[in-house]
Amino acid sequence: MTNPLARIESHPHEAKRLIGINYDQFLALVSLAEKRHREKQAEIEKNKVRIIAKGGGRKPEMSPKEGICLCLVYIRQKPIFEILGLLFDISKTKANDAFNYWVDILREILPASQIEEASVDSQKYQELQQMLSEYELIVDSAEQATARPVDYQEQKRYYSGKKKMHTLKNQFIVLPGGEDIVDICVGMLGKTSDINLFRVFRDTRNKFADSQRFIGDKAYIGDDAITTPHKKRKNTEISEFQKQENKQLSSRRIAVEHMICRVKIFRVASEKFRLARHRYSQVILAVCGLIRLRLNRLVSLTINT
């Protein structure tokens, strides 16, 4: 069975299909992840009480490059861990451990949104808020199926009447044209309505300027900050002018649908989520970081495609 890393090294043009990013982006990601890996290992070494001499003990079965490739294969293809272990010639337990270790590193080095990336510097954050206020940002949400909770009360909290299943809901806010992810809210209860998700998320975090405007679909009707389509009332028809306005609004709003589609290219973000629920936010935010890497939107990691 061919090792996925050997495959993309011998056929670089297949990297995007197998791991979700092109080969040059993969190499740049490996370089950044290895640096963070060395930092984490140095921190562990500093606090370790040694029993054997440094350099002794069992050698790691996987190189950092293989570990990162394993993590990306799972995120993109979502095989079971038995198959993932066979692909990389390790046990399913070690495959699971490797995935969890490297997805945490990806999460640390790949900001999931513009706001997260700018939040480390107050001046850059204020500049970003000012820049964003010049646009009408596009907002929409997407649901992902999850395992049904055992407890009945928990089942009711996660049950989505729209999807007729138990789901987790994510809200995306993107730039016009879908050029980048501005902000994302991950892992909310499936029964939460879109407009309530927007209000709670926006008002509690205060991430946008008061003058910020948004574009949304009919699920957001009722919020003054969001431009929404005209809705046909019972036993009435909307005018031709209103239909034309709806069409123009839809042509602008479609960008957020395209962004959600890019996220769902990674099967871990589109198929039923079967990992532990407390890992959901970490994994989906790592996927968003990979999307921004694909779009060359990361300030710390810019690749020419």
Rank of each mutant, 00 (worst) to 15 (best):
S160G: 10
L137I: 06
I181T: 08
Y152E: 15
V182Q: 02
E134I: 09
R199C: 13
S119P: 08
Q123R: 09
G190L: 04
D194K: 00
L189E: 15
L132H: 04
T146R: 11
Q129N: 02
N196K: 14
E127Y: 07
L189A: 14
Y152C: 14
T146D: 09
P176Q: 07
Y152P: 15
D180Y: 01
L168V: 03
C185F: 09
Q144T: 00
R199P: 13
R148L: 13
Q129L: 04
Q126T: 05
Q129V: 01
Q153C: 06
S160K: 03
D140V: 04
E127A: 13
A118D: 10
I173K: 00
Q155F: 02
D121L: 10
K162A: 05
S133C: 01
K164W: 01
M165N: 14
P149D: 00
T204N: 15
E134G: 08
Q144S: 02
G178E: 07
L175P: 04
I184P: 07
Q155V: 05
T167V: 09
Q130C: 05
M165I: 09
F201A: 14
Q155S: 02
C185T: 11
K169R: 10
A147I: 13
A145K: 13
Q155N: 05
G177T: 09
A147E: 15
I181L: 12
L168W: 00
K156A: 14
Q155H: 05
I181K: 07
D151T: 12
T167I: 03
D121W: 06
G187R: 10
Y159F: 15
E179K: 14
K124M: 07
R157G: 01
E136V: 01
F198N: 03
E154N: 06
Y152A: 15
K164F: 00
V120P: 11
Q130M: 03
A147H: 12
E143I: 03
Q144K: 05
S122M: 12
R202L: 10
A145C: 11
D194V: 01
K191F: 04
G187W: 09
M165C: 09
R205E: 07
N170R: 04
V182T: 10
E179I: 11
H166R: 08
T146M: 15
G177W: 10
D210N: 04
S122E: 12
D180Q: 06
E134C: 08
G187V: 12
V174P: 03
Q123G: 07
N170E: 02
D180K: 00
L137K: 00
S119Y: 01
A209K: 11
K163Y: 00
K163C: 08
S141M: 02
V150C: 12
D203C: 11
Y125H: 08
V182S: 06
I184D: 12
F201G: 06
Q126L: 04
I195G: 09
G187S: 10
L132W: 08
I184V: 15
G190Y: 02
V174E: 01
Q144G: 01
Q153D: 12
A118Q: 07
Q153T: 10
V174A: 01
V186A: 02
